[in-house]
Computed example of a mutant assay.
Amino acid sequence: MSDRKQELAERTAEVREALANAARQAGRAPEDVTLVAVSKLHPASDIRALAETGQAEFGENYVQEALSKQEDLAGLDVNWHFIGGLQTNKAKYVAGKFALVHSVDSSKLARALHNKAVSLDTVQDILIQVNIAGETQKSGVETERLPELAEEVLGMEGLRLAGLMTMPPFFDDPERARPVFARLRELRDRLETRLGVKLPHLSMGMTGDFVPAVEEGATLVRIGTRIFGARPPRG
């Protein structure tokens, strides 16, 4: 095993143990929390090395970078997650290429993904991104508009709504993010009751705040730096 592969394997094992401990602390089963390794700006060789140790879920933020990696790693048995902000005009490149799109935040984007998925005769799994803290610099639908958008998505046969995603403000103390995570869970529970559907996934929690996220119900945790190290500057 190469030094880099060993390093990635050890870091991922440490993260998995921390996730499992957080789950147990909350009375949850560790297997109910899925680690999405955020590999943006890291080379395809890192993804291959980590996949060979058993990591199956990888998150990417930039469309062209992600598609290039998918081409380089064709045949590798992994699931790709698109977790970054997505412009409507790039939706056609994403639909059908990712196991899950975490960042749908408008009916316009949803419709673009739906149209492409239908043309491919497939169904694209998505999450709706919610801007719970109301930060103007962050993507996400406002909480007041969430039910309306969810209903629209449920009417699109090219999409399958699987849950919600959020990104809290950055806090030095991760405990300060807990109310945001709790709020996303509450919004999901209300939507399930209102719409009569199951929404199994809550994508929330990153390197700095995944413990309260898991304790508040996260099913998908997006962790990059703690696994891959500091990201190189975007070229």
Rank of each mutant, 00 (worst) to 15 (best):
S2W: 06
L8I: 08
L8C: 07
A9N: 03
E14G: 02
L19D: 01
N21S: 11
Q25H: 03
G27A: 02
P30W: 01
E31T: 09
A37W: 02
D46V: 07
L50G: 03
A51Y: 09
A51I: 11
T53N: 13
T53I: 11
G54S: 05
E65C: 10
K69Q: 12
Q70T: 13
E71H: 09
L73K: 05
G75H: 08
D77M: 00
V78F: 04
F82K: 08
G84Q: 03
A91Y: 04
K97E: 15
A99W: 04
D105K: 06
S107T: 12
A110Q: 11
L113D: 12
V118T: 14
D121G: 06
I126S: 01
I128D: 01
I128E: 01
Q129D: 13
G140F: 03
L146Y: 07
E148Y: 11
L149H: 04
L149V: 06
L154S: 08
E157C: 10
E157N: 14
G158K: 08
T166D: 08
D172G: 03
P179C: 14
A182L: 14
R183F: 09
E192V: 07
E192R: 01
L202N: 01
A213K: 06
G217E: 03
V221Y: 05
R222V: 09
I223F: 07
F228L: 10
R234A: 14
